[in-house]
Simulated scan of single mutants.
Amino acid sequence: MNLNNVSLTVSAVDMKQYPKTNFKEIAFAGRSNVGKSSLINKLLNRKSLARVSSKPGKTATINFYNIDNTMNFVDLPGYGYAKVSKAEKKKWADMIETYLNTREQLCQVILLVDSRHTPTENDITMLRYIRACCERAVVIATKCDKLSASQLNEHLSDIIKTLSLSGDDIIIPFSTVNGTGVEEFYAYIEEVLEIEV
Rank of each mutant, 00 (worst) to 15 (best):
C133Y: 11
I124G: 10
K143E: 09
L163Y: 04
A141C: 11
S148L: 06
D145E: 15
A132K: 11
K146A: 08
D169F: 12
L156N: 06
D123N: 08
D145K: 03
D158V: 12
R128F: 00
C134M: 06
V138M: 12
R128L: 05
L156K: 04
A137T: 01
A132V: 06
D168A: 13
D169P: 08
C134W: 07
Y129K: 13
A132W: 06
A141F: 08
S150H: 10
I159T: 12
S157L: 05
T142I: 09
M126E: 01
K161M: 14
T162R: 02
E135Q: 08
R128S: 05
K161N: 15
D169S: 05
Q151F: 00
E121L: 05
V138P: 03
D168P: 05
I170T: 12
G167A: 10
T162Q: 10
H155F: 07
T162H: 01
L165W: 09
K161R: 12
N153M: 10
S166M: 02
T142Y: 03
R136V: 10
A137P: 09
L147S: 00
S150V: 10
L156P: 02
R128H: 07
I170V: 15
K146P: 01
S148A: 00
S166E: 12
S166Y: 06
L127G: 02
S157T: 08
K143Y: 12
S164W: 06
L152T: 00
H155P: 00
I160Q: 15
D169H: 07
D123T: 04
A137F: 10
D145L: 08
I160M: 11
L127I: 06
V139C: 05
E135D: 10
E121T: 12
D158C: 09
R131K: 15
S164E: 15
A132H: 07
E135M: 03
A141Q: 15
L127Q: 13
H155A: 09
A132Q: 13
